[in-house]
Amino acid sequence: MNIQEQLKEIVEANDVVLFMKGSPDFPQCGFSGLATQILQQSEVRFASVDVLADNAVREGIKQYSNWPTIPQLYIKGEFIGGSDIIKEMFENGELKTKLEGVVAA
């Protein structure tokens, strides 16, 4: 299985998955930390992938979504965006709508 197939599997196997730098407990970048905080405040269960742990994942996920930056949020297989978009959708309520039906934390 190549990296793109692996990433597809991760994205589809998890209702909510955040590709980030570091872990939710120890984010290694302010933008990843912000995305983590928003998901924690949204009280949903989410998976996270530390892109710093694997360079193939770090480069691969940028191609997967045609998006050059980390973090990246996926909900039910759909690419939602990076930290700016996550923040905007959190503030205007769109994120809550997207997260309906997702298992609570």
Binding site: T69, I80, D84, I85
Partner: peptide, 27 residues
């Protein structure tokens, strides 16, 4: 869409996004 708008800007910045700019927040 918001994603397409940001992708457009990332496309314009190209390699600079990787090489020169550590972190760009955009609206």
């Amino acid at each position: 869409s918001r994603i397409q708008q940001h992708q457009l800007v990332y496309g314009v910045l190209g390699d600079k996004m990787e090489a020169a700019i550590h972190a760009l927040s955009m609206k």
